[in-house]
Design a protein around this nucleic acid. Structure first.
Length: 877
RNA sequence: GGGCGCAUAGCUCAGCGGUAGAGCGCUGCCCUUACAAGGCAGAUGUCGCUGGUUCGAACCCAGCUGUGCCCACCA
């Protein structure tokens, strides 16, 4: 990398000491953020008359620090809320964090393990105390990161799912559901993690294909022998039947008889059950009701006993030679023993099948019969489905609706009890005679001999399901609940659609009398690396957002993320792209710096249209269009489009053309320059306001410098002025086209960009007349002085640019280029003529399209004429 | 097995019926007093394959191939 920075001292006569030539994010970001917070810009007033706009943060787990995915999500929410705040809404971005029961408990347990201790060494109370310490540390880290990102959250309202108030909300809703018989206690087969030692819900199980071994075992003897296959041989100790299909002729005669279960001496019945697929394997299934969900159902239908043979750690409890063995040791030991008895009829064969793993620790799940608490999901989910079907709640992007319905329409009851220590303890007390009392908030729990509280805690999603209103003070009837419920939008990743969104929908509709928790659900994708690969610590491609923010600034990270946010799709991000965004921030910085050096102003009314130059009218016309485009994109949650429109408008149109043209105006001085200073001030003012929600820091620094006002955070969101001037737009487009054409000529001729060339511009009778000075400046053309000889003559758009190249012209190169262009124009003409000669086309194509083709034809014909003339004008070889 | 996507420039992706686009990368020239974190100019695509609809298809329809994700089952 070359270092040119020292060669360019910033010492010109116009240099401003206030703004350095490069934007240094580190120097402004922290200060600005603290100022915003001190001024209370982000706090939300429930008493305000303004219409509310509410978004809750998807509460980060207090398991550590934020990653790029959070930075992405926060950027989107911050952009939405900053815009709404500018639009005059009473805006609440609700901050807070999630206690994240099992996840946090695991993290702290790992910490303890480093000290050689387990949670049991500490005991429940001391362990929970330890987790609270962890929470304080992690929470501090997270809020520090949010400040660095620029998140405009209402810090005074920060909540934690285990706060006093939120615990009340949990207890209240639990009691209500309990009283409505939507919460119950039952013994069922659940997903048990033998490492976490807790039940987990169905959706906390991750299935993956594992290599197992399928063994076929002969049960019984002689004529009555029956062969079953299994991948979990250890469970045979708990078999209480063999099942076959009722219509299976191979086994019909055996149904109702008993056979001996090997290794145990027990006799078990053969039952007929529809669940068995006669086509699969031998068509006979061993039935272990205590250790398999399907077998449990078969057992229930046939009144079979549930015989548990594994304990909570997955260790064999059945008396005998295998007692005390781990489930996987037992598996091979039992296969060995069966083989010794000649019971293995087909040798083990490799078998890939889907196996459930704990989503938190990846341990293989063991289905286990146990007493748990459940939410009866049926009526709640029905309401959640209806709210979306009725359009009360809309999902962006719409394709995600089918996933949503897929879940709410096919659900099982939700196991909410966890055998953990960190979480909301279930508010039920058991009495000495088997009584069960659910205790609501403020109620005295029963006391006396033999009463004790349930030791299980609730699934962490139980409390986060209440988040849209528990954070507002519910169950108290607070002003905040009145004002800010329902939330306006929920922004979250599609990966927690089922975990979180559906739970909020169910609980919100239930607790708030049918009012959904939010009106719009915006589902964003996952952040991936620059090759589109999933980011994860184990791949080594995970990025700490702070590293990039330190190096390139928060705005650069935010802009990159927003620009990648196409609806519902994953977002690839690489360091190169962040650099590009940093460059954009710097470009904005320097353009504004230029404007300030040249006296751009926002004071006073905009001059009336008749006092404006064509470039002024052009850029103001474009500005209005861009405001409208950006609004439309925001309203459709198209963040990538917002970012892209603004990038191209700012850089390509304002900076590369309007600013460049304004140099000529400023140099000439006079009233036109005054007008231009005001227009430039206007354009930058509006552009900075439009950019602010996405890149809040650099825009704040520049906008306050430009306007001298308090803060862009509380500035008005730009309105489309409605000013449009198609004639000016065409005129400037023509200037751009001609300038580009002459530049290309210069480039083809090998002229150095800065080299001044004497030229005569014959622009009379064209729209270019008013732009001669600007064109000369943009093209580095000098006035034609003494001894001017036109060695090159470019007819352009009805005008002529004659250059004195004094022998530097590369005639052959130019001839070659022109010949190529001529061929292209002729091809174009042929195509257009063909179309216009096509009856079918003329009769069926819409007028606009026909008109467009006519224009193309005219342009092609003009090009042919022009290029031919240019060719003819070249000196003969 | 059921469902939802995706396949466009070297890479990552827009476009979704009327002349193929962006960012990055690439080539050439350049310290041009806002910016070298920059400027100007330029090259690069049988828009996965095969059919169909249409005056016209990257775009709509059908089939195929490849690929990703979600759900269910897996003795």
């Amino acid at each position: 990398m070359t270092d040119n920075t020292q060669q360019r001292p910033d010492s010109g006569p116009n240099s401003t000491p206030e703004l350095p030539t490069q934007y240094a994010p580190a120097e402004v970001e922290g200060k600005l953020y603290e100022r915003w917070v001190e001024r209370g810009y982000f706090e939300a007033d429930a008493k305000s008359d303004k219409p509310p706009y509410t978004v809750v943060i998807p509460p980060p787990n207090v398991t550590g620090s934020l990653h790029l995915g959070h930075a992405f999500e926060h950027t989107l929410i911050d952009a939405l809320t900053r815009r709404k705040r500018m639009q005059g809404f009473e805006t609440l971005w609700q901050p807070g964090m999630d206690h994240a029961g099992i996840a946090t408990q695991n993290v702290v347990e790992r910490e303890l393990a480093k000290e050689g201790k387990s949670r049991h060494d500490l005991g429940r109370e001391a362990f929970v105390e330890r987790v609270w310490q962890w929470k304080d540390e992690s929470g501090g880290q997270i809020s520090g990161q949010m400040r660095r990102l620029g998140d405009g959250v209402a810090w005074q309202r920060e909540r934690f799912t285990m706060d006093e108030g939120l615990s009340q909300a949990v207890q209240t809703i639990f009691k209500r559901l309990y009283d409505d018989e939507l919460i119950y206690r039952a013994e069922r087969i659940i997903n048990w993690c033998p490492r976490c030692l807790t039940a987990i819900s169905d959706i906390e199980v991750e299935y993956q294909d594992d290599d197992g071994e399928l063994v076929s075992i002969r049960y019984g003897e002689g004529e009555n022998a029956i062969v079953v296959a299994t991948t979990r041989a250890e469970t045979m100790l708990g078999d209480t039947a063999v099942a076959v299909h009722p219509d299976d002729d191979r086994y019909r005669h055996l149904v109702g008889t008993e056979i001996e279960l090997p290794l145990t001496g027990r006799r078990i019945p053969i039952v007929a059950d529809e669940h068995v697929d006669p086509e699969f394997g031998t068509g006979a299934v061993k039935v272990t009701p205590a250790h398999d969900p399907n077998d449990f159902e078969i057992g229930r239908r046939h009144g079979l006993p549930n015989l548990a043979v594994l304990d909570e750690r997955g260790v064999i409890t059945a008396a005998g030679p295998f007692e005390g063995l781990d489930r996987f040791e037992a598996r091979s030991a039992i296969v060995g023993a069966l083989r010794a008895e000649g019971r293995i009829v087909a040798e083990k064969r490799p078998y890939t099948h889907s196996v459930g793993h704990c989503s938190r620790c990846k341990t293989t799940i063991e289905p286990r019969l146990s007493m748990q608490w459940w939410v009866k999901v049926g009526p709640l989910a029905e309401a959640a489905g209806k709210a979306v079907r009725d359009g009360e709640v809309t999902i962006h992007p719409q394709e995600m609706e089918s996933r949503y319905f897929g879940w709410v329409d096919n659900l099982h009851d939700w196991c909410i009890s966890r055998q953990l220590w960190w979480g909301h303890r279930i508010p039920v007390w058991y009495g000495p005679n088997g009584e069960m009392v659910c205790v609501g908030p403020g109620e005295e729990p029963p006391s006396g001999e033999g009463w004790h509280q349930e030791t299980d805690v609730l699934d962490t999603w139980f409390s986060s399901g209440l988040w849209p209103f528990s954070t507002l003070g519910w169950p108290e009837k607070t002003e905040s609940v009145e004002k800010f419920y329902p939330n306006s939008v929920l922004v979250t990743g599609y990966d927690i659609l089922f975990f979180w969104v559906v739970r909020m929908m169910m609980f919100g509709l239930y607790a708030m009398d049918g009012t959904p928790p939010f009106r719009t659900i915006v589902l964003h994708g996952m952040v991936r690396d620059e090759r589109g690969k999933k980011m994860s610590k184990s791949f080594g491609n995970a990025v700490n957002p702070l590293d990039w923010m330190d190096e390139y600034g928060s705005d650069a990270v935010r802009y990159t993320l927003a620009r990648g946010a196409n609806p519902g799709t994953d977002v690839p991000i690489g360091e190169d792209w962040v650099q590009g965004s940093r460059n954009f921030a710097n470009k904005i910085w320097n353009a504004t710096r230029f404007a300030l050096m040249n006296g751009a102003t926002v004071e006073g009314d905009l001059p009336p249209a008749e006092e404006l130059s064509a470039p002024d009218r052009w850029i103001l016309s474009r500005l209005g269009t861009v405001v409208a485009e950006v609004d439309a994109s925001y309203d459709d949650y198209q963040f990538a489009k917002v970012s892209d429109s603004l990038f191209h408008f700012a850089w390509d149109e304002v900076f590369d053309w309007y600013v460049e043209m304004s140099k000529t105006t400023f140099q000439a001085g006079g009233p036109a320059a005054e007008v231009s200073r005001r227009v430039l001030g206007e354009v930058l003012d509006v552009t900075l306001r439009l950019l602010h929600p996405i890149v809040p820091f650099v825009t704040e620094a520049l906008w306050t410098a430009l306007t001298g006002r308090e803060s862009v955070v509380v500035a008005d969101w730009p309105a489309d002025s409605g000013f449009r001037d198609p004639a000016a737009e065409r005129e400037i487009e023509l200037v751009q086209q001609v300038v580009t054409e002459v530049r290309r000529f210069r480039s083809d001729q090998g002229l150095q960009p800065g080299q001044k060339v004497p030229a005569q511009l014959e622009l009379a009778g064209t729209a270019l007349v008013a732009h001669e000075a600007a064109m000369r400046s943009l093209l580095r053309l000098q006035p034609a002085g003494e001894g001017f000889t036109a060695t090159a003559s470019l007819p352009v758009a009805g005008a002529r640019v004659a250059l004195d190249l004094s022998g530097t012209i590369d005639v052959e190169a130019e001839r070659k280029r022109l010949t190529k262009d001529l061929a292209a124009a002729e091809k174009e003409k042929a195509q257009a003529t063909g179309k216009l000669g096509n009856e079918a086309f003329l009769s069926k194509a819409p007028d606009q399209v026909v008109e467009k083709i006519r224009t193309r034809l005219a342009k092609a014909e003009a090009d042919i004429e022009r290029i031919s003339a240019q060719l003819a004008g070249l000196p003969k070889p």
